[in-house]
Design a protein around this nucleic acid. Structure first.
Ligand SMILES: [Mn+2]
Ligand SMILES: [Mn+2]
Ligand SMILES: [Zn+2]
Ligand SMILES: [Zn+2]
Lengths: 137, 137
DNA sequence: TTATATATTTGTAACGATTACATTATTGTT
DNA sequence: AACAATAATGTAATCGTTACAAATATATAA
């Protein structure tokens, strides 16, 4: 994504840009790894020794409410976050556990049997084995 | 689904058809409501007073491993189960919390950027407001 | 600047869904 | 009936998440 000024970006979405919030959001856009709360916490705890895991929880929940992050529920045992809020799908490799982005044509989904419904969010999740893992095993 | 003999169906998928397993699977195919563990437990506990919630957990996990139920993770705070294992999408209404099935054209998704990956499962989840709730509020 | 109010962060305790595990019950076989 | 194997049950433990109160930081007014 092309976010140059993170503080300004947060402000423009109604979020006061505290130090911790800026750092969490910066983590998301520089490491595009669809991290869990724990991943973010462990990564930042070194550089921000006073950081509390509760703050990471609160911050990501706030980001989700303000719609600057997507909440990704591919697996039932982990919640991941994504600062890329454009419409795209997620592929999780069952061997290396990496989550890949992919594009898809939403219009061509050609959805039947739920006409007249209001769509707020669409999530497309695919599980399988990625190219790397297919070759190396 | 057209499953006449549940016990036979379980056997054919490598599952010994104990009384509890048959009852849980029967619940799934008669009430097509994408229930949680708790929903199944509460519904059957009346008729099977000795039923343990652990058994419902074990049973649904076994069904998922043997691929006779789908695990549905639309929301991060609830795991739902579906005995209809055909490819179809799920719409969750954010007002009435009902989960609707819908069909979609998998081929037309036209997925880019993950060529050469092996797909095991595809999930399409949509959240929004259903037709009923739109009209009645 | 100082005082005061508001917002945010922190750390700990509580919660709740899920799992682990030991015990009991059931089923199938000799 | 005796035995072995499998499944169900109930309780305790686990772990991710949330609630909450105290501490800290930030903004505003005097
Ligand atoms: Mn993504
Ligand atoms: Mn379904
Ligand atoms: Zn992989
Ligand atoms: Zn509804």
């Amino acid at each position: 994504m092309g976010i140059e000024n993170v503080a300004q970006y947060l402000k423009s979405h109604g979020i006061k840009p505290s130090y911790q919030r800026v750092r969490v959001f910066e983590y998301l856009i520089t490491n595009r790894n669809h991290p869990t709360v724990d991943t973010v916490y462990k990564a930042l705890a070194d550089e921000i020794p006073t950081l509390s895991k509760t703050t990471v929880y609160n911050t990501l929940k706030l980001f989700a409410e303000k719609n600057i992050v997507l909440v990704i529920n591919i697996e039932d045992n982990e919640i991941r976050y994504d600062a890329d809020t454009s419409v795209h799908g997620h592929f999780k490799c069952l061997k290396c556990n990496k989550v890949y982005d992919f594009q898809f044509d939403e219009e061509n989904l050609n959805i039947k049997s739920i006409e007249g419904f209001d769509f707020h969010q669409t999530h497309v999740y695919i599980k399988g084995i990625c190219k790397n893992c297919k070759m190396n095993y």
